[in-house]
Design a protein around this nucleic acid. Structure first.
Lengths: 293, 293
DNA sequence: ACACAAAACATCCAAAACGTTCATTTTTAA
DNA sequence: TTAAAAATGAACGTTTTGGATGTTTTGTGT
């Protein structure tokens, strides 16, 4: 998708007028390219450089375009992962914030950041925790920091329009991993959904009530840990029997192994946040009232 | 609605002259960004922080997109509690944010807001939940919303100076109530402490490691629920034996009944956030290097 | 290939913001 | 109570901004 932006797009994104953006281009404050016919084309990287130079905040990042997934050599995920890991286990909130903010400004797709940086880092934390290299409190503090930063980023996402389709979800009883469900919420909000995470550790009974009350178009379940797989299967399938026809069930998480999935029904299973993003975009495009781009 | 304001807009909102607003920006009292041409752009959050810092009233809140009552002389806690309760159980994030922002502007201490509004509301939610008037998902969603808003307010607090005294804390294994520990963190940060919440559900073993690594001046433990009181007592007292001399233990929470407290040692027990605030202020005043008021 | 609508272009101008200066009010200290 | 100090708000000429204008480029659909 577009790496080059028009003056109007940039103006909206940084809350300035089109005239000013064009003037800044002409004056050289904003690096700019031209089409054959003389139209300005402003690279995203140029906007970021400009914002950094002037110390301005990015007011409407969603307007800077959607997934720039295809290999951007610019960002080195491995370095970012290493740095983030170190920052999290040492409780360096400010460092972690800087890493993620820069990635967000450079990458513009939350899904990619989640899949290629945040999730791998948390997996690494989990592994080192099992071999005893990382203490529980370091893992917990790391999660706290990540959740805080994600909430800050969440504020930069568009506020859902009042007629936005509703999505709710969370994790089931016994699953205390709230990071994934927070990610899901953000991905959905980025796609202009009115997504609300109900949190973690939710009994199936209350999920049923929640669906009844919210009447969502999408219901998600993040499963990082299951206390009792058989019990989960039974209750999940009950829930699906009740609502599966009217609500799109989206499930994911490492606890849902293939053997389990084969016994479940759902609208989609997501291995990654990018899968989820693609699925939601499909919904947006095929819906009667699609959320505008 | 715009998140960045011009000096004139801010001047009208807080009923001051444009000259003064500009002077405050230049002096650093108001956080400000600049356009490429050198015009000031003031974030709403910066205005809110300024108003609180100086104790001024907000004369025209509607100009900032805030509720019309914000900053008015006195606040009726009971009304606020009722409104917040309704907003939380109905998942109305925006309404809850307005209520709390309004209180934040009108009040001088976060502790008062926590003690007289947030805590009572969550107690009410808990009660109605037990009689079945409130569903689990409503309670959970309410907590999510509160944590979200508190995170936003946290950003308005002063960033701790690098030589700030360190405080860490959280809840023990089996205690999943993370709201109180988030409150504690904010109260401490408001008093210029480098406070870091380690989160919830922490085994004692890792608390020990955390204290070793962070070497805090204060260690807090929030106890809203205990799986096993005797086990807790044993492990807590072990921890106190190890660190009680070098670290100030601050405990609180409704799970610590009188019968339990009598068997525990601690620097202070806090019934309310205002107690905590007073205690920390005492520490600040008697410390060799007091954080400036 | 052509036509047409949407978007971007350059230019111009009024409104607004800039920095500076100065008179007036408020606070602090003697 | 008075004098000095500090903060405020108005006034000023200059610069920046943002909207309106009519024209040109772009991209899409036939």
């Amino acid at each position: 998708m577009p790496k080059l932006l028009s003056p109007k797009q940039v103006a909206r994104a940084i809350q300035a007028s089109e005239s000013s953006v064009k003037r800044w281009c002409d004056r050289g404050d904003l690096e700019v390219q031209y089409t054959a016919g003389g139209h300005r084309k402003i690279p995203v990287s140029s906007v970021i450089a400009f914002l950094r130079k002037t110390g301005q905040a990015l007011e409407n990042p969603e307007l800077l375009g959607l997934p720039a997934v295809a290999g951007r050599a610019h960002v080195d995920y491995e370095t970012a992962c290493d740095a983030l890991f170190t920052a999290l286990v040492n409780g360096k909130e400010a460092v972690a914030r800087q890493i993620l903010t820069e990635l967000y400004l450079a990458e513009h797709s939350l899904a990619v950041i989640f899949d290629r940086v945040v999730t791998p880092v948390m997996i690494q934390v989990g592994q080192k925790w099992q071999c005893g290299d990382v203490h529980v409190f370091q893992e917990r503090r790391g999660c706290e920091i990540l959740l805080q930063i994600m909430q800050e980023l969440r504020r930069l996402l568009p506020t859902p329009p009042s007629d936005a389709p509703v999505a709710i979800g969370g994790t089931v009883s016994g699953d205390l991993y709230r990071l994934p469900t927070a990610m899901v919420e953000m991905i959905l909000r980025e796609q202009h959904w009115a997504a609300a995470s109900l949190g973690d550790n939710l009994p199936f009974q209350t999920l049923e009530r929640a669906i009844e009350q919210y009447r969502p178009r999408v219901f998600w379940l993040s499963c990082s840990h299951l206390n009792d797989e058989d019990e989960f299967l039974r209750q999940y399938n009950d829930l699906y029997d009740t609502f599966g026809m009217s609500v799109a069930f989206v499930v994911g998480g490492r606890a849902l192994k293939e053997s389990l999935r084969s016994q479940m029904r759902y609208a989609t299973f997501c291995d990654t946040m990018q899968h989820l993003e693609a699925f939601v975009q499909t919904l947006n495009n095929t819906a009667s009232k699609p959320a505008e781009q």
